Amino acid sequence: MTIRLPKDEDKHISGTDDIARIMLKILWRQNKIHRKKEYFWTVGLNTANDIDYIELVTIGTSNRNIAEPVDILSLPVSKKCKKIILCHNHPSGKLEPSEQDILFTERITKAAAILGIEVLDHLIITENNYVTIDL
């Protein structure tokens, strides 16, 4: 599902703070009950680091989200997007990446590289803050 960029946001991404601010606004669009689920998004960027799309890939449970490389990489491949940012929320409010988060990031980064797609970042957001998973 393609997500609309918040109206007050520029499409150009200068760094992690820009994408985190946008993704926090997108998370806050959900009502409080729905924010208790784990969401996984991809953000596709063009070569000038402008947002081409934001896609909601999956909605999980309160502590789990199942996404496969094909789910995550099908839209960037179809749009011939060369750069993506991964983002998911932790409804628990804990920012520390789990071992599964780290392994998943490594798996997606390798799969994307085979397709010529660069994973620039993987953000974990809560309702108020964010961290990145080291690539």
Rank of each mutant, 00 (worst) to 15 (best):
A20G: 08
R21W: 09
R21I: 06
R21D: 13
I22M: 00
L24V: 08
L24E: 04
K25E: 01
I26D: 01
L27H: 14
L27I: 06
L27W: 12
R29H: 03
Q30W: 12
Q30E: 14
Q30P: 05
N31M: 01
N31I: 00
K32P: 04
R35M: 09
K36F: 05
K36W: 06
K37R: 06
E38L: 02
F40V: 06
W41G: 01
W41E: 01
T42P: 00
T42M: 00
V43F: 04
L45I: 05
N46V: 01
N46Y: 02
T47E: 15
T47V: 15
A48Q: 14
A48E: 15
D50S: 11
D50M: 11
D52H: 05
D52A: 07
I54G: 05
E55I: 13
E55M: 10
L56M: 10
T58H: 13
T58D: 04
G60N: 00
N63A: 09
A67R: 07
E68W: 14
V70N: 14
V70T: 13
V70Q: 14
V70R: 13
D71K: 01
D71W: 02
I72H: 04
S74Y: 02
L75V: 12
V77P: 03
V77Q: 10
S78A: 11
S78T: 11
S78P: 04
C81Q: 14
K82D: 13
K83Y: 14
K83P: 06
I85K: 08
C87P: 02
H88T: 03
H88I: 06
H88Q: 07
N89W: 04
P91A: 00
G93A: 07
K94G: 12
K94Q: 13
K94M: 12
E96Y: 11
E96W: 10
E96F: 11
P97V: 07
P97R: 03
S98Q: 09
E99S: 14
E99L: 15
L103S: 11
F104P: 02
F104V: 00
T105P: 01
E106S: 14
E106R: 15
E106I: 12
R107V: 11
K110F: 09
A111K: 13
A111E: 15
A111L: 08
A112N: 01
A113S: 05
A113N: 02
L115F: 02
L115C: 02
L115K: 10
G116Y: 09
I117A: 05
E118K: 15
V119S: 05
L120E: 11
I124M: 10
T126P: 08
E127D: 12
E127G: 11
N128G: 13
N128E: 14
N129A: 15
N129T: 13
Y130M: 10
V131G: 06
V131M: 12
V131F: 09
T132S: 14
T132D: 05
